[in-house]
Structures are given as structure tokens and as C-alpha cells.
Design a protein around this nucleic acid. Sequence first.
DNA 1: AGCCTTTTTTTCGAGACTCGAATTGACTTG
DNA 2: CAAGTCAATTCGAGTCTCGAAAAAAAGGCT
Lengths: 406, 406
Amino acid sequence: MRNRNTTEGLRHHNRALVLQSLRRIGPSSHTEIAEVSALASGTVSVITAELFEEGALLKQEQPPSKGRGRPRVLLTLNPEFARLAFIHIISGEVEYSLINYNNVLLDRFKVLRHGSETDAAAFGTQVRRDLFRLAERSGLAPHDIAHISIATKGLVGGGGTKLMWSPVFGDSQIDFQALLRPDWAGKVTVNNETCFSAHAKLEEAGRFARHHAVLSLGDSIGLGIASRDRNGQTTYQAPPFGHMLHMPDGPLCRCGVQGCIEAYSGFYGILRSAFDAPADHIPAKFIPKDQMDQLASKARQGDQMIRFAFRQAADVLAMGLSRLMTIHGPMPVTIAGPGLSYFDLMEEQFKMHLEKNLRIRVSHMPQISIETNERRLIFASNTKVSLAAFDGDCVATRLVDRPKSA
Amino acid sequence: MRNRNTTEGLRHHNRALVLQSLRRIGPSSHTEIAEVSALASGTVSVITAELFEEGALLKQEQPPSKGRGRPRVLLTLNPEFARLAFIHIISGEVEYSLINYNNVLLDRFKVLRHGSETDAAAFGTQVRRDLFRLAERSGLAPHDIAHISIATKGLVGGGGTKLMWSPVFGDSQIDFQALLRPDWAGKVTVNNETCFSAHAKLEEAGRFARHHAVLSLGDSIGLGIASRDRNGQTTYQAPPFGHMLHMPDGPLCRCGVQGCIEAYSGFYGILRSAFDAPADHIPAKFIPKDQMDQLASKARQGDQMIRFAFRQAADVLAMGLSRLMTIHGPMPVTIAGPGLSYFDLMEEQFKMHLEKNLRIRVSHMPQISIETNERRLIFASNTKVSLAAFDGDCVATRLVDRPKSA
DNA sequence: AGCCTTTTTTTCGAGACTCGAATTGACTTG
DNA sequence: CAAGTCAATTCGAGTCTCGAAAAAAAGGCT
């Protein structure tokens, strides 16, 4: 929004409002948009006409009419108006997706990664190559892609453009914006994947939910928090929860210090304490899921040592959540990730620790739920967020010339 | 702001902008306001004329003119336009203050509290009585007071109107809004005092500072965090940091659970470990400052046991800050409160724990500073925040009738 | 003293935007 | 095929901002 205090700024705001309504309620008539956006019908008329002129909207044939009167003309977002690319960096693979302006998946492929690949620069050039392939496969030039949004594990910084630290590349930072700038005209953003999970869950929870956290369990620990501020705007963050201090001089973490939450509750942490391995020994970067499953089934059969390892993992996570809620207040938490399979071994610890928390005692016990398909959630939310950003930044800005008086 | 998407909403926004500029730069001419607010001079002219009409502004005689040309007319906020009341609840006393619309102190008095007074209802009626006295002393009726803002220790909730938990009244909540509603027409807000300290420090740090925390040490531990969001708006919060979990099964805290930060680092926690008292024994609600001073001087003279108690207090605080910064990112911290006198015994622990933090490792070590006059800070910031809220909520809303065409 | 210069403030016309009533359009029903 | 119904557009009135032009209020100059 360029100039907030001028009438043009007002129009910008209202154009954004129209687009936003259209995304939320899908193809809809004039009247519906006016209702949802709380704009006068005349205003909606002018704005939609502009957007149609600019190519952002299409008028859709009305569905077989029901009832009498003039049938409604459905307005939809023009799929051809723009394309957005998405990269999801997962442990074993990188997923590339392309969508159109109306949020329909156009193309998708995955590139496997060698477990040994920890060279950030090499990874960067690989990503550039694969992104070119994504564009080419749909016959697009780089400048046809309006926005590239990357979801990854790890700590993101630099205003949402840099990967500052990650379990795979460690301190080797990757500045994706700089990496892609030379060829790709669109905006480039990077976010921790759990930001998107949390965002999706908050939206799901309805317009009055204020916060939601998603805790993703696996080789490493991810946490995303989505919040709605008092203007109704949603913000999100993904603090490196797995590397929050649990206890000084605790077991060694992959990040190099002792006593991080992950060192207790990441897969390798659980494995280590299950076998009573030395606390400064880090087993492996990735623990096969099979191995963890076997461990869990022994715990379920009553193996005390292993049972203890899972319970300790849960204790530490729960205390971390308690500390988080001391700062942010109680909020619902959704558990996700491969470690979710072992949630039955950990569930009761959560309640136990949380109910001691002062803020929870004076208000309420937050709901703890689970989510089995986090990946779907991440993609769905990433597209939503990116499209909304593109709408607000670009589409809402007036393009066509105003009708001259002549 | 009532309706964001109409031209009247725009005017509301710009009126607020003018008032805000005037508060920031003090009595200023037309031209200056136009520069600071980035509004066209004509617009400022109309808005200031309106505000003058409504009584919010005064035109001030120009100072002895220097240079030629038409002398500037200084505009100032009309002191008589409104009065705001402030209540600061401190351990031993309650301070009542009254200011005018131009932020000048009109009246102030203190009411001593008996240390034994822990009855929330009685306290409530006492506050009402004293507030009446504040109004009367200046010949005001209750409805002349536009806003009442309360600063206190403890956990505030209910949208900034309720004291949810406090060291003095424990779980006996006080809903100040409900308490004062019958007689007092103005808005009533309650905030933790350290919110205001943090707010003041953030403002001090300049327009580009994003976060600031104030840690207040004493019988209890207070923490305020102020943040600037991407729109430049400042928000603040005061999580009950003293009751964040440090370690399970740790020493008993006044709040009833074990292992809170305060149980290690509040005055009573330090005292307890200095004398190796049982960890479930809580010495007293208020420890005389003398006693703590004596303790500290023994520590400085080399008493190992006492020295350990202070260092442990610092360790626990520092780890708490580290956990906080894992969530919010590194931010400068200011230490304040009576416990500041012992900061020399604790300083090095802070750096030691913080530098292990992942987010600090990948970005920077935050500055740690001290503030000896927190009370002044709290009041100054409280008045600023409350006046700004009053401006935005009330004054910016158009009052005078528009000139009718007739 | 009277006129010119300089600087500030106000005024005013043009352009933009929203609102809501009135009008136009399109389709169903009788 | 006319009347009825509902949707979308148009249009006039009312607001608002902007910026140029005019007015106001000094000091300086002759």
C-alpha cells in the first residue's frame, strides 16, 4: 500500500478487499462480494470492472438458473493471470510445484536428495536448475513466475529471504533471494514449513481464534506459531524450538550446545537415552522410521528403559511448551510429523506439565490435537499465503489508466 | 477507526496522524506538521481548523520573530481539553496522578498500603475512594476524566482490563473496568508496569529498533517486551516471566508450583538458597532491602554460599532470557528494579548463557543495559500511551458538524 | 511612510473515491 | 407477451486530498 493517507490508497485497500473476498468465498457474484467486503455495491462494480479490464478477473457463465430474476454473473480469478512456484525442501527430497492465479496445481515433480548432500552452494545451484526445469515444462519463461515461495525446516531470517541455520546445512546460510535474483523477476520468500501448518490450523479454527501452534516431531523438532493481531491480520513465526534450552549441561545437541530440547526429544535423542548411550554421542542425522517404530513397540510391550526415553522426550517437549505459553499465553497445539506415531507414549506428560503453568491455571487448558497429513497442510497454506501477498502487493495496485476527460 | 474503507475513515486516519505528529514534535507550526505527517499543507490546514474548533488545539502566540516573512503560528494541544488519571500500584504504596491533555502533571499523591492488606475487594473499594479524591482535589467530576490507566505488577488479562494474578492478591482477580464502570465514564485500562518500561526503552532506541525487553528484579520478577510490527505500530506484553518454569521439581514458588524462575531469582529465592533453607520454605512476601544489601556485601566479600545464591539467581534468569530469545529472537534487555544493585554479582552469567543460544549465535549478542529510575520511565510511558490511545479512539473522531450547504 | 520581499497560512478548483438511489438489464412466470 | 423479480450498472451527491494560487503578516529598503 503506497500512500496510506490519500484517496488512491483507499482504493488500493478496497481493491485488495475485493480480491480477498473472492479468494475466501470462491467464484461469487457481485452482490456476494459487496456483502462479504462490506463495500457499497457501486464500489464493487467499479473495482471488479477495473480488475476485469486488467485481466485479473473473468466473468463466468452463470450456472443453470434457479429462481426468477436476472441471473447472477459469477466472477472468478483468471487462472492465466499469473503463475506462482513453490519449493518444499524435505529431508529426502525437494518438491517443486507450480500453480496458477486461481490456485490450481499445474505441475509438480520431486527431486531426490542424497543423504550426504550438505553442501549449501551445490544445493543452491541445483535448486536454480530444477526451478528452470519447472518453468520450462510448462513453457514459461522465468519472468512469467510472479512469486517463488520456499518452505523448509530450519531457522529463517533476513526478512523472510534467508535460511540462517538448518539441520542439514548447519551454519551454511543460503540467501535464496540473492540466489534467484539474477534470473527470476518475481518476489522470493522463504519460510519455515511449520509456519504454514500453524497458519492453516489457525484459519481452520475460525475467525475468533487468536493463536495456534503446530509442533512437528521427527529427527528434528519444528514449531510454528500463527497469531491474529487486533486488526485481524494473521502473522506467523517459527522459532527454533528444538534448540531452545531445556537444561544446562544436558545431552549434546546436533547444533553443538548441550541441553537443547531436540537433544532429548528428537529421534536421535530418544534413541540415545533408550540405549543409554553417552550423552555426547550423536547417533545419526536421520534415524530410519523402522528403527523408531521398533523402539516404540518395545516400549509399548513394557520395556522400562525405552518407555522412559519416550516419556522423557515428552516431558521435555511439554516443559518447552509450558515455557512458550508463559510467554504467549495458552494456545491450542497440534502435534504433527513422523514422531506423531509415538504420541500415545507421550500424551499424558503433556497435560501433566501444562496444567502447572500459571497462565493456564488462571485461564484454561489448551486443546491438544493431532494432524496426520502435515504436508498437505503446508502446501495448501503456502499457496494461500503467497497468493494473498501477491494480491496485496501487486494486483491491488492500479494498472489501467484512468479514463481521461477529453 | 470506524469504517476503514470510506473517505470518512481516511479523514479519521489523517486526523490521528496530525495529533500524533503534534505529540511527537511538540508545539509546531502548520508547515512542520505537514512535513512530519506527510500530508499536503491544505489538508493540514483543514484538519487543524477542525480540531481548533472542537477545542483540542490552541493557537499560540508566535515567539519573538527571527527573520522576515509571516511569522509561524504555533499550534499546541489544549491542556484544558481533557484530563487523564493514572494509578501506579507499587509494593508499599499506591500512587495517583492526574495530567491534562498536554501531558502536564496536575496533581499527585500517594496512599500507603499496609503490608498485610491482601484483600482484593477491600483494595478495590479503597481505590475507588482514592480516585474520587483525586478528582475532587482538582475540582473535577468523575465524567471529566477521559481515561484511567493503571500500572501494576502481576498478570493482566481480559483485554487489558483485569488483573488475573498478582504477587499480592494471588488468584483474587480484580476487574478494574467493572469496578470503576458505575461512576467513571472514561475508558479504563490495566497494564503490567514493565510493559511501559519496555515501551519507553523501545521508543528511546529509535525508529528502527524492533524489540526491547525490560527485566525488573526484586521480590518478584517482572518482564516487559515491546515490539514494533511492520506497520510501525508498537505493541507490548508482560508475560509472567517470573513464573516461567525453570526446572521441574525445583524449589517452591509463591505461586504454588515448583521450579519457577522467581523461586530461584526473586529476593526470597536468593535468600533461601543463601542460607540453605529448605526448598519448600518461603521466607516472606517482602524482604527488606537492607537485608538483601547485607547479603550482597557478604557475597562481595567472598562468602561462597551467598555468592553461589546470587550466581544461581543469575543463571536461572539468563536461561530464562535465552528461552525467551529462542522464541522472539535476540533483543536488547534492560535490567531494572531494586535487584539491580546486585547486578555486579550476576552480570557475567548473562553473557555466558546467552552466547550459547542458537539464534544469538547466528545473528548477534544483544545489548544488556541498566536503568536505575524505572518508576519515572513507567509513568512517562504510561501517559504517552494513554494519550495516544485517547487521541486515536476519541479525538480523531469527527465531532463538529460539517458546514451545511445553505 | 510606503512599497517590496519573504515566508506562512488559507482558500479554492480539480481529481478521486465511496455511497446509495435510480436505472437498466436479463430472465422467469403467468 | 406483458408483468414481475432480482442483479448489475450508472450517476449524482457528498467527502476527501492535493497543490497551485491567493491572502496574510511580518521585515527590509528607498
